[in-house]
């Protein structure tokens, strides 16, 4: 590991990306399943009703509020937090690729990847 920089190749980046995606999906599924257990314990008599659309409450629509609710172990927010982790998994993959292309000194692809990351972040910005 003396020459850390030269060690970055497409193959090694692919290994890390594969691992990143796997960990992200597993983590989110675990959080979602724990949230599901909370939910069924708290609301055993709830009934499914999705016939009419009336947007989700504010607590389930902003990242900060979802996180705050998840910390308080509120079941719906907890599941939603797991879904957020899933949503961030591809974003983390793209963010890592910026670093990997930079380490390979591939300027064109650093720019390409930054554009993709910018588009992804623009969809989240303003709704934190």
């Amino acid at each position: 590991m003396a020459n850390h920089r030269a060690a970055w190749t497409d193959e090694r980046a692919e290994q890390v990306i594969g691992e990143l995606l796997r960990v992200g999906v597993i983590l989110s599924v675990v959080v979602i399943l724990i949230g599901a257990v909370f939910y069924f314990l708290h609301h055993p008599a709830a009934r499914a009703n999705y016939r009419t659309f009336h947007s989700e409450p504010d607590d389930l629509r902003s990242i900060a509020r979802i996180a705050a609710g998840a910390v308080k172990l509120r079941p719906r927010e907890f599941i939603q937090f797991g879904l957020l982790l899933l949503l961030f998994t591809p974003v983390a993959r793209v963010a890592f690729s910026v670093f990997a292309f930079a380490a390979e000194r591939d300027r064109t692809y650093v720019i390409v990847t930054l554009i993709v990351l910018g588009i992804l972040i623009s969809s989240i910005v303003g709704h934190i």
Binding site: L21, R61, H127
Partner: peptide, 30 residues
């Protein structure tokens, strides 16, 4: 996954993503 993540943010903020419905769909399909 990356393509879907781009629109998922907008869906979330618009209140399309219900955790209790998404949970069995996501874990089942996966």
């Amino acid at each position: 996954g990356v393509t879907a993540a781009a629109s998922a943010g907008l869906y979330l903020f618009r209140g399309y993503i219900d955790p209790v419905l998404a949970m069995p769909v996501m874990t089942g399909v996966l």
